[in-house]
């Protein structure tokens, strides 16, 4: 008999299907993005902060927000990173295509930041404060993937 054998079992290839409601504010956002390529944000009546993505309540003021405002489509890179290590994307089960630019975009007219890919074809142009614009997907379905990525324009 082998002494001190440490047995390990593995979970295998199980997958679990999820179906998430985007919610009433997100649904309006994605409908506008898909059909009109417009970015809709929402403004707090009290502190006047413009939230992107839109949501129903300003957490700071705890008041309901109803004032929709169009922002973007251009903006600046507020902060970013370039991911350089390979890892499996748990959302898709596939390896992420590294390197990729991860941007926190401040749309013109918005106060909070929108996360998306930044094209890394020319890394030297990616910096905080650089102006960017979205490149839309040809086949838009009403999701965050309706934008392919943002590209630096200055």
């Amino acid at each position: 008999m082998t002494q001190n054998e440490n047995i390990i079992i593995e979970s295998g290839d199980a997958i679990q299907p999820f179906a998430y409601s985007v919610g009433m504010h997100g649904s309006k956002f994605f409908t506008e993005l898909r059909d009109n390529r417009r970015f809709m944000a929402i403004k707090c009546p009290k502190c006047k902060k413009v939230y992107m993505p839109p949501r129903g309540v300003c957490g700071d003021c705890f008041v309901e927000m109803k004032d929709w405002v169009e922002v973007g489509p251009k903006g600046i890179i507020s902060t970013f990173t370039i991911l350089r290590f390979a890892f499996i994307d748990p959302e898709t089960g596939a390896q992420k295509p590294v390197p990729y630019g991860y941007g926190f975009i401040k749309f013109d007219g918005a106060d909070t930041l929108f996360q998306h890919y930044i094209n890394v074809k020319d890394e030297t142009r990616i910096r905080i404060g650089a102006r960017v614009e979205p490149v839309f997907s040809k086949d838009r379905k009403g999701s965050i993937r309706d934008i392919e990525y943002f590209k630096v324009i200055d």
């Binding site: 902060t79 991860y102 998306h116 890919y117």
Partner: peptide
């Protein structure tokens, strides 16, 4: 959040890198 936060997400490191980048700038 599965709708907004996961597309570009890379675990703990992506947000930390964005924080460090902003601090440096």
């Amino acid at each position: 959040d599965p709708v907004w936060d996961r597309l570009v997400f890379a675990g703990a490191i992506s947000g930390l890198a964005a924080e460090a980048q902003a601090y440096i700038a």
